[in-house]
Simulated scan of single mutants.
Amino acid sequence: MVRYLAVALITAFTLAVSISSAAGFTRSVDPIRIAYSTTADTFGDLYLPPGNDDSLPVVILVHGGGWIQKNNLDYAGAWARTLTPYGVAVWNIEYRRVGGLGGWPTTLEDTVAATNALADIVQERAAGRLDLNRVHIAGYSAGGQLAAWTASRPQQGPDAPAPQLTVPIRSATIMAGVFDLSLAATAGKDKYVRNLLGGMPVDHPDRYRIASPIRHLPVGIPVTAIHGRNDRVVSIEQSRRYVAAARSAGDDAVLIELPRVGHGEFGNPTSSAWAVTKRTILDQVSRSR
């Protein structure tokens, strides 16, 4: 059964965020920039919560922006700063993008490589404080595709781009995600998908199959898709179809539809859309104890 979120609940979450901000819960946290490879745009920003607690759960953030070079990880740092006060380490990752050094298959490979880096260079820079058995991933729009794809990497066949995923992911929270790239390129007329994969589905059917998270079910972890009903950039049908397919495959998949919310609201860390997303992420972190 698909879960729908009432307006009153959204309002309550928004109020809770306002109260937290007033209490100092969103104070600035200076990130540690860490390269996970040697090429340009293969780095991430690690945000650690105040204090010296060990065994910190980790949330990987994957920014959106059509997979294109001009959109980077900077705005996702504001999301990270709302999560660290709850005792969560945040790994806000960058990846090579279309118009730069990215595209097929590099952009997909980087997201997995950045995740795997938690077990070595990132853990080293965190002084061993990260609990790698409690790693969660969240992504927005194009970054939602990358996050869901990375979570599905263990279920993919031998033709999937290297590397294999070596750091297990416990849950995925996807904001306005692109789960079926063939649907996006055809019915959605999404030029960004075409640019990422180098053409239309008829030109590269294998690329579309490999890159579409909906083609790699079940993933075997909880997945929450959060989508605005007024989204005119990524159709809500992307999330509806994914969640229905995931549940049919036996996954613990949930859809939260946000009334009167479009696409861009998720990028605002003070919005009701992000408040719902943050609560979802923190709920998943809590359940992984």
Rank of each mutant, 00 (worst) to 15 (best):
G100F: 06
A78D: 13
V243I: 15
V254H: 07
R240A: 08
V29M: 02
V122R: 00
Y4I: 11
Y86S: 12
P163C: 11
V17A: 15
N52G: 07
F43H: 13
R215E: 15
V234R: 00
T150H: 10
G264K: 02
S288V: 06
I174T: 11
L61P: 06
T42L: 04
Y75S: 08
N133R: 14
L282E: 02
T42C: 14
R241Y: 14
T166R: 13
R96D: 10
G139L: 09
G24R: 05
I221S: 06
H204I: 09
Q164M: 10
V254K: 11
T111N: 04
D45P: 10
P269S: 05
I256D: 03
G250C: 05
R209W: 13
L108R: 00
T26S: 13
R3S: 12
R232T: 15
F179C: 06
R279Y: 08
L130K: 04
A119P: 01
S18T: 13
V167A: 14
D131P: 03
P161M: 04
A275F: 01
P158Y: 04
L196G: 02
D206P: 11
T11E: 15
V88C: 13
A246F: 09
I10K: 07
R27S: 07
V193A: 10
H227T: 06
A138C: 15
Y140S: 10
R240V: 15
